[in-house]
Simulated scan of single mutants.
Amino acid sequence: MQIVVFNLGEEHFAVETEKVQSINDMMEITIVPNAPSYIKGLINLRGNIKSLVDINLLLNANSTGEQQNIIILTVEDEEIGITVDEVEEVLVIDENLIQKMDNEETSPYIKGILNYDNMLLTIIDIDKLLN
């Protein structure tokens, strides 16, 4: 299994590469009036308009740094961007090393936790998070 690792503040998260369409530097964001608070706005990516989601709000993460990257993900046949502090790396991992969450009711969007190189990675089920 391949994952894209990114950070929000001091926390490290990952999503499966099969969901990732592209990784981009931060770009101009057009604010949408009356949009839900987790919608940061819209971006124009090579002539295509994409919604941009503030994943910090959805994950209750404390991102205090400047967000440098946008990850474009496919969620139910729609491409959506999420803003992250920084994309760190792409890893190939053994799926059996992922520790599953016991309480799926409180965090249904978390696939599990991976202890990688003295770093705890929270692996996100992006379909469940953005649904």
Rank of each mutant, 00 (worst) to 15 (best):
E10P: 00
E88R: 00
L129E: 03
Y116D: 05
D77S: 14
D54W: 02
L91T: 10
D85H: 05
P36T: 05
E16F: 14
P33A: 06
D125F: 07
G65N: 08
L57G: 14
G9T: 02
I49C: 08
T30Y: 07
N103H: 10
N48Q: 13
L73N: 08
I23W: 00
M1A: 13
N131R: 11
I123V: 09
P33M: 11
F13G: 05
L73W: 00
M27W: 08
E16G: 13
G112H: 01
E28A: 13
G41L: 12
A61C: 01
I110E: 06
K19L: 03
E104T: 15
N48I: 13
T74A: 09
I23N: 06
A61L: 03
I70W: 01
A14Y: 06
I126F: 04
L73M: 04
N115C: 04
G112N: 05
D127G: 03
N24F: 06
N131F: 10
E28D: 08
V4Y: 03
Q2R: 15
N34E: 12
L130R: 07
N56K: 14
L52C: 08
L91C: 02
L52N: 04
K111T: 10
V75Y: 15
S22Y: 11
N96E: 15
T17V: 11
I113T: 09
F13C: 06
N115T: 07
M101R: 08
M27I: 07
Q67Y: 05
V84L: 05
V75T: 03
E79K: 12
